[in-house]
Simulated scan of single mutants.
Amino acid sequence: MTFALVMFWQGGDALTEAGRGKLRALLGGLPGVERSILYTPAKASDLYTDDGAGPGLGVQIEAPSLEALEAACAADGALQALADPDFLPELAGAQADQQMFVLRRYPVDEAQMQTPAGEIACSYVVHYPGPAQDYNAWMTHYIAGHPPIMRRFPGIRGIEILTRCDWISALPFARAGHMQRNRVLFDSPVALTAALHSPVRHEMRADFHTFPPFEGGNYHFPMSTEVV
Rank of each mutant, 00 (worst) to 15 (best):
Y219P: 05
S45A: 12
G145S: 13
A137T: 05
P116G: 08
I143E: 12
P64H: 00
M150C: 05
M139E: 12
G77M: 06
I149L: 12
G145M: 09
L196H: 04
R201F: 01
M1D: 00
G21C: 10
A25W: 00
G216L: 09
R175M: 02
F153W: 13
L5S: 13
D134S: 00
R183P: 03
L26S: 04
A170R: 12
I120V: 14
A63K: 08
E17S: 03
G158Q: 09
M139F: 04
G52T: 01
G58N: 11
W9V: 14
D84C: 01
H178Y: 11
L82W: 05
Y48G: 00
Q98L: 14
I159V: 14
Y135L: 14
G11N: 03
E119W: 00
R35Q: 15
R157F: 02
A94S: 13
G56M: 06
R105K: 12
L15W: 07
Y124L: 15
A176G: 15
L69T: 10
G155V: 00
P64R: 00
L38H: 09
I161T: 08
R20N: 03
R104G: 05
R205F: 11
P148Y: 10
G155R: 02
E160M: 06
E67A: 12
P41H: 05
Q180K: 11
A53Q: 12
D109S: 11
G32I: 11
A174W: 03
Q98M: 09
W167V: 12
P85F: 10
A195M: 12
H127K: 13
M1R: 00
A63F: 09
P147G: 02
T16E: 14
E90D: 12
G52E: 13
L66I: 10
R164A: 13
L15M: 06
V6K: 10
S36T: 10
P147M: 00
P199C: 12
T140D: 14
V228H: 04
H178C: 03
G11C: 01
I159K: 11
S45F: 14
V228Y: 05
G28V: 11
A92C: 02
R164K: 07
V6E: 15
G29W: 04
E17Q: 08
M139R: 09
D187N: 06
F214Y: 15
G28A: 14
K22R: 15
A53S: 09
V227Y: 11
R164C: 01
V200T: 15
I149E: 05
T2P: 11
E34K: 13
V190Y: 00
G216S: 11
A94E: 01
V200P: 04
A71L: 10
E70V: 05
P222C: 11
Q133N: 06
K22E: 14
A72R: 07
P172M: 06
A170K: 08
A96C: 09
A81K: 15
T225S: 13
